[in-house]
């Protein structure tokens, strides 16, 4: 599945001097980072470090207090018409920790509904496309089932298919396997790995260090609202520079 991106966009996502606070509490402090087209970035860090908040600011599910985040050349946090924001969002795929599938729609309808209603795709075309995507994530035989009848791992794979149905050039993952029983983590990570292998631009918040080591091009380590370290997996896992990163990795290995 090839991402559809205009060739002149070398950087798919650019985060410039982004800060966010809740009242007195500074959640994100002056974050500067870029994700290049086709790159896979893993964001990790201790809980409360702001990593979920950061990824949610990228499709503006969270607002920021200062700075800019540009996707595809456009600042997503600039004042804009709701319609334009919706259009921009439809081009950023987002996978939630809690899947958030629509329980009143069948699996195939979950995947096909938004291309029809948001992008105006013809219903039969969207339906066929949905079946193809479900096949891709290994769930085409569940097309007419309902989310409540699926396991957590199956639901998350449907959620990935649902996001892919909008043909986004970029996919964001917010702790996609954290809510799953351990035996189901593998099937979801397998789908994510195949997406990466196909060249999808991906930004993942995750604790799955095996995934990071195998697939990530870069790792951003966040603590207390700042990106403390940006490194390749090799550098990060064998030779973390920052003491807090060293401590984080040590805790993970216990």
């Amino acid at each position: 599945m090839t991402p559809s991106v205009s060739p002149q966009d070398v950087n798919a996502i650019r985060i410039s001097k982004v800060s966010k606070q809740y009242g007195d509490y500074q959640v994100l402090k002056d974050i500067d980072a870029e994700v290049a087209r086709g790159e896979v970035v893993v964001i990790c860090g201790p809980s409360g470090s702001g990593k979920s908040t950061l990824i949610r600011t990228i499709n503006r599910l969270e607002e920021i207090n200062s700075g800019a985040i540009s996707f595809d050349g456009q600042n997503i946090h600039a004042p804009m018409k709701t319609h334009d924001l919706n259009q921009l969002r439809s081009r950023i795929g987002f996978v939630f920790q809690n899947f958030n599938l629509f329980p009143h729609l069948s699996v195939v309808d979950n995947v096909s509904m938004s291309p029809v209603r948001v992008k105006g795709v013809a219903r039969d075309i969207a339906h066929d496309k949905a079946l193809l995507l479900l096949d891709r994530v290994g769930l085409v035989d569940k097309a007419n089932a309902y989310p409540g009848q699926l396991s957590g791992g199956q639901q998350q794979r449907v959620a990935i298919a649902r996001a892919l149905a909008m043909e986004p050039p970029v996919m964001l993952f917010d702790e996609p396997t954290s809510a799953l029983d351990p035996e189901m983590v593998g099937e979801v990570l397998a789908v994510m790995k195949s997406l990466a292998a196909d060249g999808m631009t991906m930004l993942c918040v995750t604790h799955e260090m095996g995934f990071a080591r195998d697939v990530a091009d870069r790792i951003w380590f966040i603590d207390a609202g700042q990106i403390i370290e940006m490194a390749t997996p090799e550098e990060f896992f064998t030779n973390p520079r920052h003491p807090r990163a060293q401590r984080f990795l040590a805790d993970l290995r216990h």
Binding site: R89, I92, N100, F102, R117, V118, K119
Partner: peptide, 16 residues
């Protein structure tokens, strides 16, 4: 919130 967020992330507006 999850349902509204998922809908918005897919590009639906409020009324959609």
């Amino acid at each position: 919130h999850g349902q509204m967020e998922a809908a918005k992330a897919l590009g639906h507006g409020y009324f959609g």
